[in-house]
Amino acid sequence: MKKLNITVTYLVFLLLLIIPLGQVLSSAFSTGFSGFWSALTDPQALHAFLISGILVGAVTALNTLFGVLLAMLLVRETGISRRIRQFLNAVVDLPFAVSPIIGGLMILLLLGPHTALGAFLEDHGVKIVFALPGMILATLFVTFPLMVREVMPVLQEIGTDQEEAAYTLGAGSWRTFWRVTWPSIRWGVLYGVVLTVARALGEFGAVLVVSGNIINKTQSATTLVYQQVENFNFVAANSLAFVLAGFSIVVLMTLEWAKRRKEV
């Protein structure tokens, strides 16, 4: 039983993760390093990486700020009635249940060029759908629960004692947050940041719908992978995928490290 189980474990990992990763690698380098390199330094790819970078940066910054604030509000603000807090708390999880493709569709339906709001904004020179702002919005929607759900349990666990002690010693809310609350939650926040970065970089469905996948304009690294596969450009697709997978592994290692820090 034990032998069988361990064998199955090895097999599953091998088949599902290790062999496919190896194939990405071998396919990326199937035309040698130069093929790999030219796929990556192709202007289209460079632009896609740039777009992904901007997307990740903007989404991570906004999501961290609002995620931490909302977590504080949901856990600490006693001025809001319990009912309302429970409701808000349930809403936080909704994006988990929404297919990313629907997440993108929502933004299209609300702000697309055929909607009143979208047309109005476009008349005033603000382009949201098929442009970066829409992609950021879609990614924010998808990543929203990640930060809140990391920070809330930590806040609950540390309790209010230390914060109250700081108040009785004369510290205001700003100082109390930075000197007392923040040191306790920062590893949780870091964990949330890493999750957000990974998800923002990897988000595909929502971004694909909202961006229109316009080459050299709104194409991100993941939608480019998709397009290259559709065009049967496997070397290019795998080169990009290889870089993205390498990044995911870095993310994974950071998570392991942050988890360990979080526990002490």
Binding site: V24, L201, G202, F204, V225, V229
Partner: peptide
């Protein structure tokens, strides 16, 4: 951690 498109490609 992997982008899902990369997963599909794999």
């Amino acid at each position: 951690a992997l982008p899902t498109a990369v997963g599909g490609l794999m």
